[in-house]
């Protein structure tokens, strides 16, 4: 974090938005869960277990959305050297990884009554599993350097390389899957879905997205504060005198 970045505006804006996004996310998810668990019919084939879909499908959406967001933020960071973009990509990764893990766990729970096994090498599930590995690699790389900015820059390149590879991996997994087992059981999310099921699904989807924005802002604020602490430490080392918080210049201030 250097004096050319201007996170003060972000800090002000996010402070105002935080309670609203938190409230909206909780309300949307609560409404979606209520409709999904009580307000919608059971599937005529899958019975009550279809309700796992209301968590599974939005999680899978978010897994992909977060990776796309991460790659976009990385591109902005690489091209326009905006430090907030790099930090946003970094802050997104663990959230995206959690959504991916949630999609995997719920998929496995859903698969048990459907297929009779906890894990089926279904094309979609396998792609999500590979996506999870991509997230893990990104998180590992960002934390692998003693200099945090070095990790940010390396991880930004990795995010773009990974993003370019996602369609190729998806294609290869689909091809592999049709070679070995032609039929996929996952039909949920298709266009034939009943409107009474679509409403909770969309509510959950929007709720998860708003939740992501909320957590992203929280994490970004934490990152910025951590950068401030590091700047203070550095000043302490350079000046040889203990730096007091009151003597600290705010990050956005002109040096």
């Amino acid at each position: 974090m250097h004096r050319f970045a201007n996170p003060t505006r972000f800090m002000r804006l996010s402070a105002a938005l935080l309670p609203w996004t938190a409230g909206a996310a909780l309300a949307l998810i609560a409404a979606g869960l209520y409709l999904g668990l009580f307000g919608s019919p059971a599937d005529y084939q899958q019975g009550e277990s279809v309700r796992i879909m209301y968590v599974h499908v939005p999680s899978a959406w978010m897994a992909m959305f977060c990776y796309t967001f991460m790659a976009g933020a990385s591109a902005v960071g690489l091209i326009w050297k905006h430090p907030l973009a790099d930090l946003a990509a970094k802050a997104t990764a663990p959230v995206g990884a959690c959504f991916t893990l949630l999609a995997l766990i719920t998929g496995s729970l859903w698969g048990k009554p459907m297929w009779g096994t906890w894990w089926e090498w279904d094309a979609r599930m396998t792609s999500v599993l590979v996506l999870f590995f991509l997230y893990l690699g990104y998180i590992a790389l960002i934390n692998a350097f003693d200099d945090p900015t070095r990790g940010l820059k390396a991880a930004a390149i990795l995010a773009l390389v990974g993003f370019a590879n996602v369609p190729i991996i998806k294609f290869s997994v689909d091809w592999w899957n049709t070679l070995h087992q032609p039929a996929s059981v996952f039909k949920a999310g298709g266009p034939s879905i009943d409107p009474s099921m679509l409403a909770p699904l969309l509510l959950m989807g929007v709720g998860f997205t708003v939740y992501f924005l909320w957590v992203l802002m929280l994490r970004l604020r934490t990152e910025i504060v951590a950068a401030k602490v590091r700047a203070l430490r550095l000043r302490q080392v350079r000046s040889g005198a203990p730096a007091t918080p009151s003597g600290a210049t705010p990050l956005g201030a002109k040096g």
Binding site: V130, L136, L141, A144, W176
Partner: peptide, 26 residues
């Protein structure tokens, strides 16, 4: 990417192996 990192080798495999999957499949 892993130049200068701690534990380059293990990290490299974590980064690169998922990207190798399409080559393996075909």
């Amino acid at each position: 990417l892993v130049l200068g990192s701690r534990r380059g080798g293990v990290l490299l495999s974590l980064l690169v192996l998922p990207l190798f999957i399409p080559v393996l499949v075909f």
